[in-house]
Amino acid sequence: MNKIKSFAKINLFLKVIGKSKNYHNLYSLISQINLFDEISIQETSAKKSKFLFTGPYKIKSEKNTISDLIYLMKKNFLHLKDKNFIVRVKKNIPNGSGLGGASSNAVTVFKYLKKKYKLKISYKESLKLLAKIGKDCPLFIDNKVKLIKSSGVRYVRFHHRLNLKLLIIFPNQFISTKKVFNKLNKFSKISINKKINLTRKPSLINLCKLYKNDLYVPASRISKKIIDLSKMLDKLDTILYYSMTGSGSAFFVICDTKKSLLNVQKMIKKQKKAFWTTIAKTI
């Protein structure tokens, strides 16, 4: 049985620029990274679909983004109406980390079913369908770097790759996205028409330092671990840039060399043994 990779993502910067209806509008640069869950899917003659999660970050809920996706696809595609599936997911991406694992899982299954059953659905309609599962789901439709200019459905795609090596740090604390946004007190007023050049690493890093992540402050009101981790990273002069990703609680660190990243990882493991870390890169 073939396993499909479901990649995580990072927000290199994240600005909350307003709110429309029930969703916040974001201005955020996003790249997928080579940290991934592993998914296998097979058709079953059983009367309902089954979802099996394993791995270090397995979940127990029968209701999840994949079950929501399959329900929606069976409703929208006559060819899938009477089909059921066994979906196995090895969860390597931490939950409640801001790395987008749940959304990525749903989109990965969508792309598999669309290809296998030759479903007739346009790119635009695919994005609309995926947005019903989660507003950030459309971002995983392909591996391109994206600049969000809304709640996730509207974005600019880049053709260049970032080619960044990273250290991912997860303080082993689940943080609710809803709770983080509820703690947000103000919106950022910035121009969203600024040109971004992915090929010039120094200017990109400076832009990220300027914009940072608007959700850091509200997330730090929920988790002291986030404040402690920031204080640790602030002391290291080998770090070019670090930030929390999404609504947290995971952070990423960018250094000039892999050796520097390994040294930061070693320090984190020594001082915070409960924290999970991994070396990764953008894809």
Rank of each mutant, 00 (worst) to 15 (best):
D82P: 02
D82Q: 13
F85P: 13
R88W: 09
R88N: 12
V89Q: 03
V89E: 03
V89C: 13
K90C: 08
N92D: 08
S97A: 14
G98N: 08
L99W: 07
G100M: 08
G101S: 02
S103A: 11
S103V: 02
S104V: 07
N105W: 03
Y112W: 12
Y112N: 13
L113N: 03
K114L: 01
K118F: 01
Y123H: 08
Y123K: 13
K124S: 10
K124A: 03
S126D: 00
L127Q: 12
L127R: 11
K128L: 13
K132A: 00
G134W: 05
K135R: 12
C137T: 12
D142Y: 02
K144F: 05
L147R: 14
L147E: 09
K149M: 13
S150T: 07
S151Y: 15
V153S: 12
R154Y: 14
H159W: 13
R161F: 15
L162W: 04
L162S: 02
K165P: 02
L166T: 04
L166I: 06
L167A: 03
L167V: 05
I169E: 04
Q173R: 15
F174S: 10
I175Y: 06
I175V: 13
T177P: 10
T177R: 06
N182R: 15
L184R: 10
N185M: 10
N185T: 14
F187Q: 09
F187E: 11
S191W: 00
S191Q: 05
I192C: 10
K194R: 13
K194P: 01
K195A: 06
N197L: 08
N197I: 08
L198R: 06
L198W: 05
T199Q: 15
